[in-house]
Design a binder for these strands. Structure first.
Length: 611
RNA sequence: GGCUCCGUAGCUUAAUGGAUAGAGCAUCUGACUACGGAUCAGAAGGUUAGAGGUUCGAGUCCUCUCGGAGUCACCA
């Protein structure tokens, strides 16, 4: 049993015994003692004041005495303003450190036999991955690792949006102006190549629109349909979609191509496969570089027709209803939402139909009782509706659905826009942070890092920067700050690990005996701080898993590294006053290294050997 | 306009309803001829947007106001 539960139980017993009052153990508030006070764990005694009918200080003292008598490892306590601070014995801390060092998987829980699916990344195949995908991937893969660490079997999936108008635009542009260009004959990464044709299409389309705006037909439409006082540019800006659908030659060609694709036209399908193939090869490279992976891919081209059977079923269960025109709806007004269409009058699917079908398909594929969707907060409403509908349909996994909603990544100049060329490309970004890490390393006279270590440092800076903030916060991405290597950063944490790595090499070189560590009695405040932090590691992982929030682990790692740097500065290790102290400090350092490496690995950040 | 989310130091941020709101950046001042200075110590910087309320206790919960964002498609 963990320390918090142990203390909760004894306090519950104490209140029952001393004041004849029943308190459920899990409601007892126990927290690590704030570093400004002496003690290791703190119990809040205010809730027992009424039952004890004495002052908080007296009650605290009575519960403290009871706990000290029942639990041999409590060596003392103090009560300050209604807070009972319990102190654990040196023997307890010694045993804790020795025990954690025997476990290579310290902090991780045993398998719980349960399955969870995590969906993340979910790119479109018409352009390369960008900064937004990077945040999504880091959150998704990190959450997967965290859930795995607390015992789940995790199935990582991505939905590939490989069909529709967007990819047809790239295909058409390539067909018209591509001149046979391929990744092989141009040396360009496939996803970038396809993305360039998408941009080219948009450019050609814009040109066509500008020419059209000068025609008599266009001017007639403007004068007929403009709102009062609406300028011509403003009108045509709003009119763009309508124009593309009704008048554009390129628009007609794209729609024709989409129809051919849907009809299974061999030539169109072959081109689609070829260009998507280029994109997948590019994505694989980016994912590998970023350190993320998937167990299963769902292609939208396979799933976009799913969900119609569920609509039929929902009609039978009266969850849905049919309007006179034949379209099918769900009324969620009693849940605070609107009415939503789930099937068009012509019987074709909409976005949510597909998601209903995909959810059930995934459950059949893997039987996960929980499913996590890592999707930006623009889609909060969509997922609220989706989950509500699945609940009403009585799907067995409906209670285990979670939308891991995160804030969009914006630049200091505002939202990224493809059209304005302000999109930060994922590949460029990763290359840039590594370049800066290398540059900074070369400025140091004692540069010891290998190429591989420099890669870890650069990516460590980027990943930590993105994952240290609460996912739901909108993020302003400042490229300069993202590659900071000092302060609250990935490299700061890596540096503490590298320091320990250096110590261990010397231990091995000089054959230093660590056995006397167990005889060390005079634990210093800086050492206690580290022990207390290590003690909290398992609970921190659990909290991160409960909240689907990797930033808890990032903050933990930073705090632990900070404590370690202070310890390093304040206390000599090899010049320790005696062999017991030296051995203990080395063992403690080993423990810190284990927690840091495990914690950072949960964030997808590797530790360099030297830097 | 309806619904949802957000507002903490100049900037970026932390804080299961608990103690004196904790860090980093930037600014200023310092640090051992000792294990690696990508480090450490210190100074300064806060009416937690504002006003009420609940509570022994509120940055956190409730109500209102102000400011910002997202969303309200038979798009995905």
């Amino acid at each position: 049993m963990d320390m918090t539960s142990t203390i909760q139980n004894v306090v519950s017993d104490a209140v029952n015994f001393l004041y004849n009052h029943t308190v459920a153990p899990e409601t007892v508030q126990v927290q690590p003692t704030d570093s400004d006070f002496s003690g290791d764990y703190t119990v809040v005694v205010f809730p027992f004041v009424k039952a004890g009918r004495k002052s908080p200080d007296v009650i605290g003292a009575e519960i403290g005495a009871f706990a000290q008598e029942k639990l041999p490892f409590i060596s003392g306590f103090n009560v300050i303003k209604g807070f009972l601070n319990l102190e654990l014995s040196t023997a307890y801390w010694q045993a804790f450190l020795a025990d954690m060092l025997t476990k290579s998987d310290f902090g991780r829980l045993p398998r719980n036999g349960r399955k969870v699916m995590v969906e993340y990344s979910s790119p479109n195949t018409n352009k390369p991955l960008h900064l937004g995908h990077v945040r999504n991937c880091l959150l998704g893969s990190s959450c997967s690792r965290i859930l795995e660490a607390v015992g789940y079997e995790v199935v990582k999936v991505q939905v590939i949006n490989d069909r529709g108008v967007a990819i047809c635009k790239s295909m058409l542009a390539w067909q018209k102006w591509g001149e046979g260009k391929t990744p092989a004959n141009s040396g360009q990464k496939g996803d970038h190549l396809v993305g360039d044709f998408y941009v080219l299409f948009e450019q050609k389309s814009r040109e066509e629109y500008e020419v059209w705006q000068q025609t008599d037909a266009a001017r007639a439409i403007y004068f007929e349909k403009r709102k009062p006082d609406q300028s011509e540019p403003a009108f045509f800006k709003d009119y763009k979609n309508k124009w593309f659908n009704d008048y554009s030659t390129l628009g007609a060609e794209v729609r024709q191509m989409l129809l051919q694709w849907e009809a299974g036209d061999p030539e169109t399908v072959a081109l689609w496969k070829q260009m998507n193939g280029w994109v997948y090869a590019g994505f694989d490279q980016t994912y590998a570089n970023l350190g993320v992976a998937f167990d299963k891919l769902y292609y939208e081209s396979d799933t976009y027709l799913l969900g119609k059977d569920i609509v039929e079923e929902g009609l039978g269960k009266s969850v849905f209803y049919r309007k006179p025109d034949g379209s099918v709806w769900v009324n969620l007004t009693d849940a605070g939402h609107d009415e939503k269409v789930v099937l068009r009058a012509d019987g074709t699917s909409v976005y949510i139909t597909q998601d209903l079908g995909t959810a059930r398909m995934r459950y059949r594929d893997f039987g996960c009782e929980r499913m996590v969707y890592v999707v930006a907060d623009e889609q909060n409403y969509h997922f609220a509706v989706l989950f509500e509908v699945l609940k009403r349909l009585g799907e067995p996994y409906a209670e285990g659905l979670h939308h891991l909603s995160y804030g969009l990544v914006e630049l200091p100049t505002g939202r990224m826009k493809t059209r304005e060329g302000t999109v930060v490309d994922a590949d460029d970004l990763m290359e840039e942070v590594q370049r800066i890490a290398r540059e900074q390393a070369l400025e140091r006279t004692d540069n010891l890092a290998s190429e591989e270590d420099l890669r870890k440092i650069g990516l460590g800076a980027l990943k930590f920067f993105m994952i240290k903030v609460n996912p739901k916060k909108k993020m302003i991405f400042n490229p300069e700050e993202s590659v900071d290597l000092q302060g609250q950063t990935g490299p700061y944490i890596q540096y503490s690990y590298v320091r320990i790595n250096g110590l261990m090499q010397r231990v091995a070189r000089e054959g230093i005996d660590l056995a006397p560590a167990a005889q060390y009695l005079d634990i210093q405040p800086q050492e206690k701080e580290l022990l207390k932090a290590l003690h909290q590691f398992p609970a921190t992982i659990q909290t991160a898993a409960n909240d689907y929030d990797p930033s808890h682990i990032a903050n933990y790692c930073y705090a632990l590294a900070k404590s370690y740097h202070r310890f390093w500065h304040d206390l000599s290790i090899f010049q320790a006053p005696n062999p017991e102290a030296r051995a203990f400090r080395l063992e403690l350092s080993k423990g810190v290294a284990v927690a840091l490496k495990t914690g950072m690995a949960l964030l997808g950040i590797d530790m360099p050997e030297k830097m």
